[in-house]
Write a protein that binds this DNA or RNA. Structure first.
Length: 813
DNA sequence: CAGTGAGCGAGCTTCCGCTTGACTT
């Protein structure tokens, strides 16, 4: 137990763990005939399997499956009054692993703790040491950065002690995250909604998305005119397209400029050729793999990780949760060989990439194929595609630069200072581009790039064919995708490779963020063109701001974010994690005591928690007062209700006489932006539109959006119609449409067997029988002419087969 | 599939980082 109290560097060096080294048996002693019992413990079972092959039969290699001990999941488990002492327990799902390891350790001569060489890995070794009740004399701590025979044998020859400073840095990290998460979350349960959560990583992830959405809302596009001219070269046929070297501010400027051009002479004023180079991107880390797999293959972050895990378990790639650019000497060698064999010497270049964070200890390699020469793998189509991506990126990073030539032609306009400029890029030597080109999520990739320019001569006079000035607008900031959010988190040093995908899942699960589409708006823009002697103006429309599969904050996300921003700036600061990391590094260096670091934080943090609870004693977070109801004079406000954002007239706390009225906000409305008038309209629902066929037609909003009720049946109102202003005629049309759809749904029924029907569904005709649905094969059947026997035969056939495999959606709690 | 929301209030929820399976609803 004294191990987790303040241990200074000196104490470590000459203390408890030094004994482990002091009492080491010489290695040679281990090689005796009956002393083959070495137990090596690593973190991952796949790694265990590989290493066991390298070490031979004297070594048994087992896996701890990550951490084996943690703070109790149900309670704070940090004694904030007594030195922040953590209470660790072995979680239920780890009991079996611990049992196995304990039994094996008992009968082993020497136990080698071989968890990763980073903060978490060091802590895993220490927990193993404690939980398994290991003895200093026969326990050794070893580390290796790559899984190769030489690296592992070298590690075995150079064991060290457990680094308690590093362990303490991990304990500080763990305790801090627990305190932040478990002190903030309960405030949200009370003030906003049960089961919500806040934390050092997830709350900042939500903040990024909220901030971005606000920047988008506040963005005002600024127009300007982009001017492009077409010139005819002296040969009379070839066209040179060039853009004016500045944008024109407004129509007046455009007209003035085009008028001046009518009589101007255009001359080739300058031609420059500049060689440029492009270098390959470094090999993949978790976050860059996630980005490229999203851009090139369309995989979600979690999909990429699931597929990569399969490849890793099959021994095809190295570990997929890493932030290291490092490649083993072996990998560098085989990459070289592959490139020389396939592309030749000209294409090879040795490169070493350095991991960005300087203090980082490289626990793993970059993500690469285990055997780089291996171009074809067995597996699913998805696995093959991801493998190819990884392989190409790995090979490309050891290839020569691409050499390009950039040509710029400038055309002077008689008597003016502006120039028309055409630029093009030609690949002189493709180098790494032959294998891999990095993708970009920049939507305005310039179309004028990468084009071959026609041959022109200096001082040549050109004939102007036409000039077109098109109104363009500055672009709003882009919404985050899963992958671009991960990239931003990594840039800020927030989160780890193993948590990027789960963090996104958490903020989605809590309802802070949704992944979805946004419809664009139409915008008109002006085009002013000069052709021959005439200047013409026209206008066109374009759709702007449309988005697919982007992350957007919900009302709950915004309300929670604003609350956290108001009271817990320290934790919400984009630099908070980076600052914490500095402290953790100091602890790892033995310069700081971990409990003192935590105390420094807690003394600032905890009072803000108390303050937030006190101030918000009888006020819920996120309520916004809109004004008073003109009819009753009662207050109208919006807030987060049990079922999401809602509006309310009257307050039960001040008004004991009458029950308040409630109305759910409609899709697209937000607590932040809704006006009093818009909110009051919501209370007009449900509204009776009139009668149809002697029955009332009512419009309302339910759990699944706006609907019309008539004769006990419901019809959804499509997005194109506004439920607040829908007319009786429109409603009747919808009811009739639904009826014809219903009729078409029933293709065929059978008198003999009323339980069996042939129906028309979203995916075409199918058989419905006793509550289950059965597919009708595409060929060989005409649904309208099928007999009952044929149908029953298909049902029987389907029953015989095992149920179609279903994808596991999510573990339900 | 479909109009919910207080009131009296038990007992529950939650963090971040390591790592893989196991439920077939």
């Amino acid at each position: 137990m004294y191990l987790c109290t303040n241990v200074r560097k000196e104490k470590i060096r000459f203390g408890y763990f030094e004994d482990i080294l002091v009492h080491l048996h010489p290695i040679s002693n281990l090689e005796g005939a009956n002393m083959q019992k070495n137990l090596v413990i690593v973190e991952s079972p796949a790694k265990a399997k590989t290493i066991e092959k390298f070490l031979g039969k004297d070594f048994h290699v087992l896996s701890s499956y990550g951490h084996i001990r943690d703070l109790n999941a149900k309670t704070l488990s940090v004694d904030v009054e007594h030195g922040y002492a953590p209470q660790y327990v072995v979680p239920a799902d780890k009991e079996k692993v611990v049992e196995t390891l304990q039994a094996e350790a008992k009968s082993a001569e020497v136990i080698w703790l071989a968890s990763d060489e980073d903060r978490e890995g060091e802590a895993i070794s220490w927990h193993l040491y404690e939980v398994l009740g290991l003895k200093p004399e026969n326990t050794r701590r070893i580390v290796f950065h790559e899984i190769t025979k030489t690296a592992i044998l070298h590690a075995i020859e150079t064991p060290r002690a457990i680094d308690m400073n590093l362990v303490n840095a991990q304990q500080a990290r763990r305790v801090l995250d627990r305190i932040v998460g478990f002190e903030l979350s309960p405030i949200l349960w009370k003030k906003v909604r049960p089961s919500l959560s806040a934390g050092r990583v997830q709350s900042v992830a939500v903040r990024l998305i909220v901030d971005r959405e606000r920047a988008i809302n506040e963005f005002v596009p600024e127009p300007s005119f982009r001017v492009i001219a077409n010139f005819i070269l002296p040969d009379g046929t070839t066209i040179l397209k060039a853009e004016l070297d500045r944008r024109l501010k407004n129509k007046e400027e455009v007209y003035a400029f085009l008028k001046a051009c009518q009589s101007a002479t255009f001359t080739i004023e300058n031609i420059t050729r500049k060689p440029t180079r492009r270098s390959p991107a470094p090999p993949f880390t978790t976050s860059t793999l996630q980005q490229e797999a999203a851009l090139k293959l369309g995989y979600s972050v979690s999909q990429t990780m699931r597929i990569a895990q399969m490849l890793y378990e099959s021994g095809l790639i190295t570990y997929m949760r890493t932030d290291s650019f490092n490649l083993s000497d072996l990998a560098l060698g085989t990459a070289k060989e592959t490139i020389l064999n396939t592309y030749g010497e000209k294409y090879y270049k040795f490169r070493q990439y350095h991991t960005k964070n300087k203090g980082a200890q490289e626990a793993h390699e970059a993500i690469r194929p285990t055997y780089i020469a291996n171009a074809e793998i067995k597996g699913t189509e998805q696995e093959k595609r991801l493998y190819n991506l990884i392989r190409k990126r790995t090979i490309a990073c050891q290839m020569a630069d691409a050499e390009l030539e950039r040509t710029t032609i400038s055309v002077s306009i008689g008597g003016m200072t502006e120039r028309f400029v055409a630029s093009g890029e030609v690949v002189v030597f493709d180098g790494f581009l032959q294998v891999y080109k990095e993708s970009t999520d920049d939507e305005n990739e310039n179309e004028t790039e990468n084009k071959l320019l026609p041959r022109v001569n200096l001082h040549e006079e050109l004939r102007m064919q036409g000039i077109v000035a098109t109104e363009r607008f500055t672009q709003r900031p882009a919404r985050y995708t899963e992958a671009s959010l991960v990239r931003q988190l990594e840039n800020l040093g927030i989160g780890r490779p193993s948590t990027y995908a789960p963090t996104i899942q958490t903020v989605l699960n809590r309802g802070y963020v949704v992944k979805g589409d946004k419809e664009g708006k139409e915008r008109t823009y002006a085009i002013i063109s000069l052709s021959g002697d005439t200047i013409q103006e026209s206008s066109k429309t374009e759709i702007i701001g449309a988005d697919r599969n982007k992350l957007m904050p919900t009302d709950i996300g915004i309300v929670v974010n604003d609350f956290l921003m108001e009271y817990f700036q320290l934790v919400m600061d984009y630099n908070f994690t980076a600052n914490v990391e500095k402290e953790l590094d100091a602890i790892a260096e033995g310069e700081e005591d971990w409990t003192k670091v935590i105390d420094g934080f807690y003394k600032i943090f905890h009072p803000t928690v108390e303050e937030a609870i006190a101030i918000h004693k009888d006020h819920r977070i996120g309520e916004r007062m809109l004004g008073n109801d003109p009819k009753s004079g009662k207050p109208v406000f919006v807030k987060i209700g049990r079922f999401g954002p809602m509006a309310q007239i009257g307050d039960s706390k001040t008004d004991k006489e009458e029950k308040p009225q409630f109305a759910t906000l409609m899709k697209g409305q937000s607590i932040e932006t809704i006006t009093l008038d818009e909110a009051l309209k919501l209370f007009e629902l449900p509204r009776t539109l009139g009668e149809f066929e002697g029955k009332t037609v009512v419009v309302g909003v339910g759990r699944f959006g706006p609907f019309i009720r008539h004769d006990g049946k419901f019809v959804s109102i499509p997005k194109t119609l506004n439920p607040l202003s829908i007319s009786l005629d429109e409603a009747v049309t919808l009811i009739q449409e639904k009826r014809t759809q219903e009729e078409q749904r029933h293709i065929k029924t059978f008198e003999e067997e009323p339980e069996l029907e042939i129906l028309n569904g979203r995916f075409g005709p199918y058989i419905a029988y006793k509550g289950k649905n059965y597919k009708i094969p595409k060929s060989g059947y005409t649904p309208t002419e099928m007999t009952l026997e044929e149908c029953l035969a298909l049902v029987k056939e389907a029953e015989g087969k095992p149920a179609t495999k279903r994808r596991v959606v999510r573990k339900k709690k």
